[in-house]
Amino acid sequence: MKIVTLTVLSTLLALAGCATVPPPPPAGLAIDRTLSARGQSDRVKYIIVHYTVSDLPRSIKILTTQDVSAHYLVTDADQPTVYSLVDESRQSNHAGYSNWKIYNQLNAASIGIEIVNPGYKDTPQGRAWYPFKPAQIDQLVLLLKDIVKRHNIRPENILGHNEIAPQRKLDPGPLFPWKRLADEGLITWPEPSRVAARLPGYQQQLPDVFWFQRTLAQIGYAVPQTGVFDTATRNVLAVFQTKYRPTLFDGTMDAETAALLDVLTSPLPVLPAAPVAAPAGVETAPVE
């Protein structure tokens, strides 16, 4: 993976103080940096994935000359380029009004990645979504692994824009290959055998609206907790289905969605490691 710093605004960005090295203090001020506080953490807690809804030239223009921005842009060339637009130490304006778990306004706690993709078009036959190029996803996986390693991002904190803004955003859409990210060890995925085991019970008795709302909120979604199946709840369900069941994402409360939610919110316990057997012929001392 090759990351290119876009030079269109490089001078302006440098003047704006994008360098991560602290500038020298003004004359007469001495700052001692030999101590470090224990109570601190990385600014970056989340990675948010977007599509640009534009071609490459327009995507670059929007992301470099307007208020909206992103840390990285993955192009749609046959051999995609990954552009670095905003230094990771700085906030980019990619998330907008957003919520996830205890956080809101996720710009301050996230890295935003835009992928060049038109999104969708509405046709007489229905909405048609544009697929992502495999080479784009290959580069994205490398980029995500690098960011995750450097910032220790948890698997449940790699999200789509629609997940943190389900009432107003659709990206990265149903054709984004979340399962590929799961296969790469980047995100959590519901184990199919566990989903299948829970499905018959939910087919016999579907949980009520409040159960769906409570369980979606447990994952992290901002969803009403009213027990009323309103438009806002349907939108959040549709976003969840877009990620974990992209073949059908109509926002309906159904047995398969309930089983997926159940598995994701009830992970298997971590079993203690089995004791290592001593090699043949080696005696171990008894424990007193």
Rank of each mutant, 00 (worst) to 15 (best):
L35R: 14
S193P: 02
Q40S: 11
S84T: 12
P124G: 04
V44C: 09
V270D: 15
A255E: 00
I60V: 06
L144K: 06
D42E: 09
Q105A: 15
N157F: 11
V195D: 08
K169R: 15
P131T: 04
P224G: 05
P23A: 13
P131A: 03
M1F: 01
Q205P: 05
F240D: 00
Q218K: 13
A128H: 13
A232M: 07
R168L: 12
F229D: 10
V44F: 13
P224N: 07
L144Y: 08
G227Q: 06
L15S: 10
A135S: 15
W100L: 03
T226Q: 13
A273R: 14
R180T: 14
K179L: 15
D262S: 05
T265C: 07
K101G: 06
M1N: 02
P190C: 08
A259Q: 08
V228P: 06
D171Q: 15
K145M: 11
W211C: 01
A222M: 01
K45A: 07
G112K: 08
T233I: 03
V228M: 08
T247E: 15
S54G: 11
P166S: 06
Q203K: 12
V49M: 14
P118F: 00
I158N: 07
T231R: 10
F240K: 03
A30Q: 13
Q125G: 10
T233R: 08
L73A: 01
A182C: 04
D138G: 04
Y72P: 01
P190R: 12
A255N: 01
N152L: 14
A109Y: 14
K145D: 08
T11W: 08
L35G: 13
L268A: 06
T11E: 13
V282K: 10
A165I: 04
L260H: 06
S89M: 10
Y202N: 12
T252E: 15
I3R: 11
D138I: 02
K133E: 03
S110Y: 11
R33L: 15
E256M: 10
R58C: 06
S84L: 13
V228I: 11
D146E: 14
T81F: 03
Q241R: 09
F132C: 05
